[in-house]
């Protein structure tokens, strides 16, 4: 490396998100993780899954540490949980924001599961009248969700 490059590199180089390397984690994951071995029994090891969208194989994904397209998530759905757990403090399910426009029935499904929790606690407190109202709300939401499923296209 020449003087200019050396100084460029040394000089107040700014680290960004990239500094946190997935590949570091992955290296450890592939070698030592007993979770992975359990999930990939030896007889299946050869037939590696391939993405229906971009033809990336699961092995390629493991090597690169990056997905090729949104469909990769769908294609590798069964393989991903142990990796996600490792990367996200044990979590595998999104709890955050939903896209307002595309969120569609997911918004309602979340609402239903919130209402179910409420319903349970109302029953425990023997607030049966209120519980009945909540149950009706759940039923009508579920009907709406079923209706949407037949109609609007969701991706």
């Amino acid at each position: 490396m020449c003087e200019v490059c050396a100084q460029d590199k040394g000089e107040a180089f700014m680290n960004d998100d990239g500094a946190f390397s997935f590949n570091h984690l992955l290296a450890g994951l592939l070698n030592v993780s007993p979770v992975m071995k359990q999930n990939q029994p030896t007889q299946n090891r050869r037939e590696t899954v391939e993405c229906s969208g971009c033809q990336m194989t699961f092995d390629q994904f493991l090597k690169i540490g990056k997905f090729g397209c949104p469909k990769c998530y769908e294609s590798f759905r069964d393989q991903l949980p142990p990796i996600l757990k490792r990367l996200h403090s044990g979590n595998t399910v999104h709890q955050g924001k939903l896209p307002e426009r595309q969120g569609g029935t997911i918004h309602m499904k979340r609402k239903v599961s919130d209402l179910r929790v409420e319903l349970k606690s109302l029953i425990e407190q023997e607030e049966f009248e209120q519980a009945a109202t909540i149950r009706d709300q759940i039923r009508s939401l579920e009907k709406e969700i079923d209706g949407e499923r037949g109609g609007a296209d969701e991706s």
């Binding site: 997935f22 997905f67 998530y73 759905r77 709890q95 955050g96 924001k97 939903l98 426009r101 991706s155």
Partner: peptide
């Protein structure tokens, strides 16, 4: 800003995994 853009841009989103990202370290939110 995210909401305003989503009105006219189809985000890659999955009910289970959330917002889909190139690197699995960013998925979800």
């Amino acid at each position: 800003i995210d909401d305003a853009i989503e009105k006219h841009f189809d985000y890659a989103f999955d009910e289970n995994f959330g917002y889909l990202t190139t690197c699995p370290t960013n998925v979800g939110t």
